[in-house]
Amino acid sequence: METLYVICVGVVTFCGVFLCLRGRTFSVVVGLTMLSYAVNLFLFSSGRLSLRGSAILGTTENYADPLPQALVLTAIVIGFAMIAFVVILSMRARADLGNDLVDGRDHPDTEKKVQAARGKQ
C-alpha cells in the first residue's frame, strides 16, 4: 500500500511540476492545482495510512493521526484561494498585456496594449 501511495504522489508531483514549467498561464494554473494535490497527499501521509480509524472518538480502537488531517483541511481551502488568485491574475494579465505567455520574451503587440491601457487611465 505504502509503495503504491508514494508512487502516486510521485507521479502527480511529476505532472504538476512539468505543467508549471510550461509557458502559458493556463498550464501553470493546472500544474499548480496538481501540485497542491500532491502536497496535500504528501502532508497527509505524515500521519501514516490507517484504514478504518477516523479520528472520531468512540468509533474505533486505533485512531488515525488527526493533526495532519486538520493541517491538510485548511491547506485545501487555502490552496483553492491561491489557485483562484493565480487564475484571476492570469486573466488580468491577458486582459492588460494581450497574451497569456509567461516566458519573459517581449511580444510586439504587448507593448502596444500596455501603452493603450496606460493611456486610458
Binding site: V6, G10, V11, T13, F14, F18, L21, F42, S46, D65
Partner: peptide, 24 residues
C-alpha cells in the same frame, strides 16, 4: 519534473515507513 517527483516520492516513502511518534 522527474527528478522532483522522484525526490518527493522517496522522501515520502522514507518517512511513511518510519514508526509513528506523534504529538496527536
Amino acid at each position: 519534473a522527474a527528478a522532483i517527483g522522484g525526490i518527493v516520492a522517496t522522501v515520502n516513502y522514507a518517512f511513511i515507513t518510519q514508526p509513528l511518534d506523534s504529538i496527536s
